[in-house]
Every structure is written in structure tokens, then in C-alpha cells.
Design a protein around this nucleic acid. Structure first.
Lengths: 235, 235
DNA sequence: GCGCACTACGTACGCTGTACGTAACTAGGA
DNA sequence: TCCTAGTTACGTACAGCGTACGTAGTGCGC
């Protein structure tokens, strides 16, 4: 009715097996694992329906029986690596626990550099995302605040971690597909930037870049950021 | 030499006009304006080399004389809307000024919902980005801290704003291309989520969703987040 | 045992970014 | 002043993408 409106579907609401017909040759976990491996090895661009199907050993269009749209494949991938989160018994110190969560998330994203680009609040309802959220809320049990506030803090924290790691990884991930090296690219960019700064139009930027700073300790900056966000939270 | 290594280029280092040959029919600003309009109207997917060229009124491949790679087109777009930032004389209250910057950035992203997806630190050296950074640093002149620290705070602030707005916009932007309505999609997702919560496996999530919360005030949450990040900063 | 819902998959369409070749044009050096 | 080298303009072509559709074949529920 109404033409062909294509009923919307959340892939998690679909049963993996309905009973009728031949038994499926693969599980969702199989498919997600293949897609994750492809993305880890060749970047997100290497994850195409054709590649995943070929790696699984089936025809391209067969994959559509398991994954109706490519976006659902992405959702499977995010959920699959979300399962790598280690969940522990909360210690009673919610700040320490959330710090640990954040560091773990950062490690997860460094293992799977494509993850930040796929992160989206609409994926927040996958099975492993629900387990993760529940765990974070459990860590915050000692904190006396409404759940709404806790969820806001979690969103803020995860947002900061995501952008931080995305920035960390942006250049590397971007460079992967380029025909020239990262140093070459950086050299050109720095040369251009140097010219702009030398023009005198941006005195503070110039000062910032000539400032005697020493090498940046990414770990320290990350920890600094976490402290900013967590320690400031006094409900 | 060395085969065809294709020398890397930052588009800003290329002069718009070299002197030789016929005078170009368009300026970079023209091209950026067209691309931005297309993205505003039809989402980022509507920005293809063919569409932009057609809208400019030239052949597809002619566009490559102005924009060597599609990524450069994105860089042009980010820079162009960066020019919409209103820059003012710093008030002396750096927190208030940065708050104003953040609100402006949010408005900018709501006008151009594709912006968060294109935001990347490698675009940070475009002309308008330099102007913007210089302005932010000027706002922070009353703050006694090394420029390195100021830049970290700026990165943190911009990161939070970006993810916050990205989350705000994700569903809307995502829904644009779907053949079914946003309510339909949400209904399906909520129904599924309700089933999961009712299973009893996620007691805190269940409590969070049954909590008497009232409607979320996105403005208030945004302001709350800014206060968290800014007020916590005591060098 | 019948029928139907499912799996499997080849073909095809429209779209993408862009490499390459060719023709027209114009400014700088002789 | 003319020549020529570097640019602009653009059509063609290719490889790859997501996926709609049609056609077999399979096995569970009735």
C-alpha cells in the first residue's frame, strides 16, 4: 500500500534467523568481523559491499540478505568493536572509573582508526552500546545526580574523547590513500603556513609557533583534557 | 622523476591566476559559493564535481583546473563558511568572548549542517581559519598562559562544540536521504529500545528512560557544557 | 506434501572521482 | 613582433560504487 514506501528497519530488531528457507551461511558476527578487518587493513574506503561479500566468499547481492543497506553494515561494525570494551566491577570512585573508560575508548579508536568517523548517536542502541552505557551508568552509581545529567556528562566525555582521537588520527588516516608521503604533505603545509605567519597578519599565531614549547606529549594532553571535564563536575 | 609521484599541493599555496593562458572564468570564491549552496540545499552528497561544474556552467573536467582534487573542494567550502564568522574587538572577559565564539560556531554549523562532517584539523590553515584562530587568541589575551595551552583549550572547546552540534544534527541530516520519515524511523528505534529495556538487562538505562525528565532544552545543555569546559579552566 | 518465505546470485543502471588527449588561447621572452 | 610554453576548456573513457530487480533453488511450518 502507498506505492513502495519500504518499511524502515533497525537491523537489531530483525531476527538473524526466521526459520523458513535454507539456513544462512553466515552470522552477523562473521560479516561484522570481515568488515572490521577490511577497515583495519585498508581504511574505511576498503569496506564496500563487493569487497565484504568477496571476502566472505559469496556473491555481492547475497550480502543484502543479511545487511539491507550499507549503513547497517557500518552499524554492525561499530557494535562489533564496541564489544571489545572491557567491563569491570565499578570501584566506587566514579571519576577514576570514567577515566579508565575514556582511556579504553581511546585505545579502541587507535586500534580501529575508522571508528571516530562512524561514531554517531543513532548507533547508540546496538546491543554492545547498551551494555557499554549500562556499565558507564553503573560506574556513576556513587554520583548523586539524575540519570539525565549523568547521560549528559557521558555524552560530553565521549564527545571530547572522540574529537581528541579523531584529531590525533586525522592526518594519519587521511594520508593513507595519498600517493605522496605524510612528510611531503606536511612539509608543503608548513612551508605555506610559515609564509602566512611571516606576513605579519597573524602575530599571535606567529608567537604560538615560535614559542619554545618542546614536543607535545599527546598522553599528557589527553589526561589534562579528561581532568578538565571530570574534575569540574560537581553536581 | 621517480615515476609520477604527483607533487603534493595545498590549494592555498597555488596562485589563483598564473598569468599565462586564457583568464579563468571563475574565482575560487565562485566555486566555493556554488558548492556551499548545493550542500546547504541537498546535503553533502549533492556536492559532486559534476554537479558543481554544471551549476557553474562549465564542463566537469574544467573544474579540475581550479580544484585538483575533490578534497580541495571541501577545503574551499570549509574556508568559505569560516568567513561567516563575525570577529569583534575582544571585551577583556575571555570566558565571555569564547562563549560567544562557541555560540557563533554552533549557529554556523546549524546553517551548514554538513560542516561538522568536514571539520578536520588539516583544514586549520586556510585563510579564514587563520583569521578565526588569531581572533580567538586575541580574545584570550587577558589569560596568562602559554600559547600552547591556549591552543589546547581552543581545540578542546571547538571539539566539544563540534561533537555536540554533530549529535544535534545527526538524525536530521541522516534522515534527509531516507525514503521514510524521521518519525517512522524513530518509532521503530524506540520500539526496539523499549523491548530491550523491558528485558531487564539494563536496569539503569531503564531508569534513565522512565525518569521524569521533561523535554530536553538543547540550548541549556549546550550552555551547561560550555560552562563545564570554560569555568574549569584555571591556569 | 504443499506452499511460501527465505537464501543465493547474475545482470544492469545510474552515479561517482578522475586520468588522458586534444584544441583554443594568451602572456612573457626573443 | 612573433614564437612558444603554460593554461584553460572539455569530451571520452574507465574503474568502482550502492543497489533494484528477476530468477532459481531450498527447507520449515501448516
Amino acid at each position: 500500500m502507498a506505492g513502495r514506501p519500504a518499511v524502515p528497519q533497525v537491523i537489531w530488531a530483525r531476527p538473524e534467523r526466521t526459520g523458513r528457507g535454507p539456513r544462512p551461511a553466515f552470522s552477523r558476527a562473521d560479516i561484522a568481523a570481515v568488515a572490521v578487518r577490511l577497515a583495519d587493513e585498508g581504511g574505511l574506503d576498503a569496506v564496500s559491499m563487493r569487497h565484504v561479500a568477496a571476502d566472505l566468499g559469496c556473491g555481492t547481492m547475497s550480502l543484502y540478505n543479511y545487511v539491507p543497506r550499507k549503513e547497517d553494515l557500518h552499524e554492525l561494525m561499530v557494535d562489533a568493536v564496541g564489544g571489545e570494551h572491557e567491563l569491570w566491577e565499578p570501584s566506587g570512585d566514579w571519576r577514576a572509573d570514567l577515566r579508565r573508560v575514556a582511556h579504553q575508548t581511546r585505545e579502541l579508536m587507535r586500534r580501529h582508526p575508522w571508528l571516530p568517523r562512524l561514531m554517531s548517536p543513532v548507533y547508540g542502541f546496538s546491543p554492545n552500546a547498551l551494555r557499554f552505557l549500562e556499565h558507564c551508568l553503573a560506574c556513576m552509581d556513587p554520583l548523586d545526580a539524575p540519570y539525565g545529567t549523568k547521560l549528559q556528562l557521558l555524552a560530553l566525555l565521549n564527545g571530547c574523547v572522540t574529537t581528541y582521537v579523531a584529531n590525533e588520527l586525522a592526518t594519519a588516516e587521511r594520508t593513507r590513500a595519498l600517493p605522496w608521503s605524510e612528510e611531503q604533505e606536511n612539509q608543503v603545509r608548513i612551508a605555506y603556513l610559515g609564509g602566512q605567519i611571516a606576513s605579519g597578519a597573524y602575530p599571535r599565531m606567529a608567537a604560538a609557533f615560535t614559542e619554545d614549547a618542546g614536543p607535545i606529549d599527546l598522553e599528557a594532553v589527553f589526561a589534562w583534557m579528561l581532568d578538565r571535564v571530570l574534575d569540574s563536575f560537581t553536581p
